[in-house]
């Protein structure tokens, strides 16, 4: 069964993270946790991906002294980078199953477009 972390568990696992800051991350939608709707105690539930993202946000704000606007910019760039990588990966996988001639032609076109 998928294990989600509660707000308290996230706070306990990341030293230096305060509730105020976690709430700010959620309100600015830098992290998008789930909300319980199955009758348990109301509140947020964090998936592993949310938890890792909160850790990254803490690293960026503590270690690099990023304030909130700067954090937003870095995060937006990082999300774009990952989206681009995912697209590139999808294209690479599609090319991989093509015949050698097609792959050679695509390869030549890529080298050609680099100028």
């Amino acid at each position: 069964m998928t294990r989600h972390l509660t707000e308290d568990e996230v706070l306990a696992a990341i030293p230096g993270l305060t509730r105020t800051r976690l709430v700010a991350f959620i309100e600015t939608e830098m992290v998008l946790p789930l909300r319980r709707v199955d009758g348990g105690a109301p509140g947020h539930l964090f998936r592993q991906v949310d938890f890792a993202r909160v850790q990254l946000l803490c690293d960026l704000s503590d270690d690099l002294d990023l304030d909130e606007p700067a954090l937003g910019v870095v995060l937006a760039l990082l999300d774009q980078l990952h989206a681009t990588r995912q697209d590139l990966l999808a294209v690479t996988r599609a090319v991989q199953v093509e015949s050698p001639e097609v792959r050679a032609r695509i390869g030549a076109a890529i080298i050609g477009s680099r100028g």
Partner: peptide, 17 residues
Amino acid sequence: QRQYYRDFAEDAGNPYQ
């Protein structure tokens, strides 16, 4: 042991995409 965000970033269901 820590799992970094990048370990999830390219999962098909990544909610941040």
